[in-house]
Amino acid sequence: MSTETADGDGDAGAESTVVVTPSAAEQALELMRQEGMDTDISGLRLFVQQGGCAGLSYGMRFDTEPEDDDAVVERHGLRVFVDPASEDYIGGSTLDYEDGLQAAGFHVENPNVVSECGCGESFRT
C-alpha cells in the first residue's frame, strides 16, 4: 500500500494519484461523520468500472479501511483509496464537490479522458 499525504492546498507533486479540493474533502468528511465512520481510518474509495455509453464510469463509496494494494491519498483530512486497476485510468485526476443551482455532487476532472458521453456520466481513455 502506498500512501501520499499533503497539507494545505492538497498538492504533493506532479505524480499525484488524485488531488482533492477542500470542498470535496469537507463534504465527504461530513457525510462520513453522519454515517458514524472513523475518519482517521476510513476513507472514500474512488474507482472506475465498466459501464455507460462511453465504456467506463466512476464509482465512489465509503470504506472502513484500504485494501493492501490500494494507493492511499490523504488530502485536507480525507483519505482516498484507489485500487491499482483504477489508478491507471484516474491518475492525476481532481475530485471536486460542486453545489450549484442545477445540481450538487462530486465531480472528477480527469486529464486522461479522450471522450465523454453526452450526459457526462461515462468516459473513454
Rank of each mutant, 00 (worst) to 15 (best):
A103N: 13
S122M: 12
A104T: 09
V48G: 04
F81L: 02
S16R: 10
Y97T: 05
S122P: 11
E26D: 14
V73E: 06
T94I: 14
R33A: 03
E65T: 12
F47A: 15
D7S: 15
V20A: 14
E35M: 13
T17A: 15
L46R: 00
S93K: 06
V19N: 10
G100L: 08
E98G: 12
S122I: 08
A28Q: 08
A103V: 14
A24M: 00
R124I: 00
G36W: 12
A25E: 11
F123W: 10
N112S: 08
Q50L: 09
D88S: 05
G59M: 01
L95H: 02
E35K: 14
E116H: 01
C117L: 10
F123Q: 11
G52H: 02
T21A: 09
T21C: 08
S23H: 11
G118H: 02
E74K: 08
C53Q: 11
D69R: 05
V20Q: 13
E4H: 02
G120E: 13
L46E: 09
T94S: 15
S57A: 13
L29P: 00
A12F: 08
T39H: 03
T64R: 00
H76C: 10
F106W: 01
D69M: 09
S93Y: 09
E65R: 09
V80K: 06
F47H: 06
A71S: 14
E116V: 15
V82P: 13
D83V: 00
A85G: 07
F123D: 03
V113N: 07
S16N: 03
A25Y: 03
P22H: 00
F47L: 12
D96A: 14
D88H: 02
T125M: 09
S93I: 02
G120P: 03
R124V: 04
L78Y: 04
V82Y: 10
T94N: 13
A28C: 05
S23M: 04
P22G: 06
G92N: 05
M1W: 01
G8M: 02
G59W: 08
V113C: 01
E35D: 05
Q34V: 05
